[in-house]
Design a binder for these strands. Sequence first.
DNA 1: ATGACATCAACTGTATACAGAAATTGCCAA
DNA 2: TTGGCAATTTCTGTATACAGTTGATGTCAT
Lengths: 214, 214
Amino acid sequence: MRASDKAYDELRTDIVEWRLRPGAVLGEVEQAERLGVSRTPLREALARLVADGLAVQQRGRGAVVSDVSLEHIDDLFALRRALEIESARIAARRADPAIFTELRTRFLEAGKGADRESRESFYHLAAELDRRIDAAVANPYIQQSLRSLRVHLARVRRLAQDDPARLAVSALEHAAIAEGIAARNPDIAAAATQLHLHHSLEHIKAHSGTREDT
Amino acid sequence: MRASDKAYDELRTDIVEWRLRPGAVLGEVEQAERLGVSRTPLREALARLVADGLAVQQRGRGAVVSDVSLEHIDDLFALRRALEIESARIAARRADPAIFTELRTRFLEAGKGADRESRESFYHLAAELDRRIDAAVANPYIQQSLRSLRVHLARVRRLAQDDPARLAVSALEHAAIAEGIAARNPDIAAAATQLHLHHSLEHIKAHSGTREDT
DNA sequence: ATGACATCAACTGTATACAGAAATTGCCAA
DNA sequence: TTGGCAATTTCTGTATACAGTTGATGTCAT
């Protein structure tokens, strides 16, 4: 693995998992020493972070971790609406119904439990649905935009606490999306996605507080 | 201006304007000498091009200009539909009607002439409409995705020849979009945008040939 | 004649040194 | 005490050198 990739992965993980808070200064020398790489690959890593929108370049003061707050969530979800609803539409036209029928069943199953174990499996299942939709859409341009978007979403999710009740409902919403795609009905898949995004946004805005954990 | 910015701008322009064809190898030493910069800033420029999707990194053989063909156009327009229709919707809810009413008038005027001069003014007008919609949407995430998309669109446009008749119709379609936004009617703005994108895609697919000019 | 292996060359990836610019800090004057 | 200016220090941006790897080419053997 290249040193620049290593630096990029570590910095990105640190930012997404809030170990590097918004506003933190990413000095080239400091971070290069911390990660054990030279300044050249670290600069490449910083450039990629800036391209991702995870950091902003400040003149003279290096790069700082970009801000993320509730004000940006509406903007983030506006883009998410545009991309995921269109993706659901396209997937519903192209997907293999068998795959999404099976996913629907597993979502209905995952919604029943509320312990940590089933919570973990639910997150993995949601990620798998994303991957399956991506594969069905098979559009590199949409995939790239979604990939960039999901990095920011992962960051924002840390603003909201876990909520078992929301998780159960969310599982049902995911099942509805899978059902709409399996039925090859673009309108239903789009509607289910829109509904899910609406509830998801409402939940984050309602149950978010300032986090002061590690 | 930084040397890396200069290298990035020149390479990007060369790729978008087809001076660097798809498949062209971007050797670090070769391009660094050609552009009169060192390898370090050139590497940063290449990294940005790869992030933009204008080049792909090949192991061992440097970066090559990414492929663009008619097969990708449907994918490109799928993303464009998602982003621009949603943008039109949002702009219709927030925009200042006076600005878009004036833009509509200018589009109706621009559609009448067919000479090179009015063609130029039409392109500038279309770009201004994009900017005005961007400003009204005021969403940095959507703006970033749109910016990346438009680079690819500029590349694809060279596949299709100019067509005065299409230009006149296109002006009317742009006027309709501006009208929908000015009327603060999201559905009409979205419908006008969808119609415009549909015709635009049809035109490109119908009137595109292999170009072997400089 | 063809295929495989070895050698060579070119290119990428990384580190480091150097120059220029900007910010911060300290000192002096009002 | 406060404001402005200057000097120092740190950081960015660029160039270049070095090492490792990969691809290409040529030769030899079958």
